[in-house]
């Protein structure tokens, strides 16, 4: 098994945290992982993305040019990465901010109103965790226990742990209610 993921959004949406938790969960599952942020002079409002690979094999190139899955949090990210997604790949869209439909017909689209769900929980900053929950539920590759351990170990703000966990759970619920379907 090798899963190549691109996470993308604007600076401040927690893309880096999202990627780190993904990689950390993979590591807890005793798999090989790599995580590369698109580092730069990025700031709140700029674009941000990161590449994560989770694999049972040794990972040669840590770069992701054709992702198996993409988690996109805003429109510019969709425009940038929808082309590159692998055929039959999974596209996770934050439908609160992305109203455009994808041009691709050969992929599975999982629309999650992440920003709305996060706002209802009381902090729109946790939209990334809603997307993460949706991803985990859809992929069914990880033990739920490890996901929450990773969350705890990566987030270093204990006072925000509870709302982040809740956001992941909401994301999971969103998928189990609506989206699980095969191409």
């Amino acid at each position: 098994m090798t899963e190549r993921i691109i996470c993308a959004g604007f600076g401040g949406q927690g893309i880096v945290t999202l990627g780190k938790i993904l990689a950390h969960t993979g590591m807890l599952e005793k798999r090989n992982v790599t995580y590369i942020p698109k580092y730069g002079a990025e700031m709140r409002g700029g674009t941000a993305h990161c590449m994560v690979i989770i694999s049972d094999n040794l990972i040669s190139s840590p770069l992701v040019s054709v992702p198996d899955s993409a988690i996109v949090m805003n429109l510019p990210s969709l425009l940038k990465f929808e082309e590159s997604l692998k055929a039959k790949g999974d596209l996770f869209l934050n439908s609160s901010l992305i109203k455009k439909e994808t041009e691709r017909k050969d992929i599975r689209v999982i629309k999650i109103p992440a920003t709305e769900i996060a706002t209802k929980l009381g902090n729109k900053q946790v939209a990334n965790m809603v997307m993460l929950g949706a991803y985990f539920k859809q992929k069914r590759m990880f033990f739920e226990e490890n996901i929450f351990i990773a969350l705890e170990e990566v987030l270093n703000k204990p006072e925000l742990l509870s709302i982040n966990k809740q956001a992941v759970k909401e994301g999971m619920k969103e998928v189990s209610e609506k989206y699980i379907s095969d191409l």
Binding site: K20, A23, M27, N32, V33, T34, Y35, I36, P37, Y39, P62
Partner: peptide, 10 residues
């Protein structure tokens, strides 16, 4: 290089 510095691995 910058990639190695920024990349995270176990």
């Amino acid at each position: 290089d910058g990639t190695l510095g920024q990349m995270m691995e176990p």
